[in-house]
Design a protein around this nucleic acid. Sequence first.
DNA 1: GTAATTTGACCATAA
DNA 2: CTTATGGTCAAATTA
Length: 450
Amino acid sequence: MTSSYPKLLKYSLFRQLQWTNMEVNEAAKIAIARPVASRPRCPIYKSLSELLAGAIGISSTNVHSEMAITAIRPKTVRLKPATNHAFVGELSSQVGVSEAPVGCRSDNILQSVEKPKVLYKPMAKLAPRKPIPLLENKGSAASDQQREIAEAEARVQSANEVKQQHDFTAECQQSLLAKSQQEKRIVNSTIVLESTEEVAQSQSLINTSTVDRPSYDGNNWRKYGQKQVKGSEYPRSYYKCTHLKCPVKKKVERSYDGQIAEIVYRGEHNHPKPQPSKRNQPAICNDTSKETNKSAWSNQHPQTSEAYICRTENQNDVGLTIHSASSSKAPCFYDPIGMHSSVRNPGDSAEGNKRLEATCVEPKIKRRKYFGSLCIRDCDFSFDEFLVSDYYGFLPSRKIAGQSNGAGTSGESAFPYMPNQNTTDSEITEDGFCWRKHGQKVVKGSSYPR
DNA sequence: GTAATTTGACCATAA
DNA sequence: CTTATGGTCAAATTA
């Protein structure tokens, strides 16, 4: 390890120089000489496959010897995280769960609520009945996931099958909702679902095919890092927009089954959205409303506003309104704006506005200045939003209409399945949501105004 | 061969 | 000041 110090120092100097120039000139940064690779090859590890093969038959002595080798290696050794191994067993159990009848599934979900799992699934796609392997983006597991997704998509090519799937899931969710409603309470005219985690988990088991898909928000992303952050159960992945010189980055936390737990955007795109690839198009359903939904969200929020902007200190109207609506009306199945705290920490500080303030940005994010002020939610609309919207459709309307909270009562920004009744320049699309037009512009690459 | 991902190391920032 | 944590880099690895 000591032999690598000179190069590390060189790297360090480079990094300092890089930081100095980072904000000034991105192009110049690229032009700077990159550090010479300093990671010595270790002939012991020829491939990850071999590593895995060894790990399967792992013994304590093997572990120690590996660790000893690792200790003297100055650079990366690719080993599966221990936590992933721990999930193998859980995977097995989930297999049983997912193949069980719907009712059994929900029961299992509710029983597992003591686990601090919070899953946020803005993405939704047709859910394969079989569970997704838990190791995200790792080796053959990812391939299997993709294969399963493809198979699942093939299974539902016809619209009838889609509808069946839809009804099936909605029915399941409805039963879950009935259970979760038993635990809801009202705090300062805001309905708080204490069991949103249950509901979210339930959907994670129902819709499980979001693996290997950073986002369907219309942009292309390149992953440049992944890290396990404290306080988060899931690893956080870092993505950059692949568009040339686009500064947008996003952080994605995913559960081990690939579900999106959290997405935070940073920056604004300086380019129009690329044309969606065929791969990214929702593969199911002839109805274009899915894509309508998707683009509706994408067009409303990214680019100019890049999704909703929620401020921690100074809650603006948008964030406040939208969140109050979503938090009060929905169990955060799909809460693109305020799912964070209302889902993850539903019960601690239920004090009206305080709650609203806390809903957009997690406290821990405030550490970083540039992340503290903005929390922009990604929202992936694709297939399962049908399921979501239908789920919301099952919510008793009186629960929604009955709230007296001043903010957000108009419902014009409410995502739950409630036709807007008092907006003027809004329209109810076939997706069931009410959209309010807040701008129009001609974008490059598109012959039609957006 | 290229492109994308993984992952340990490093740095900046906040506490 | 030190420590803890998150964000980023880039070589190694995989697809």
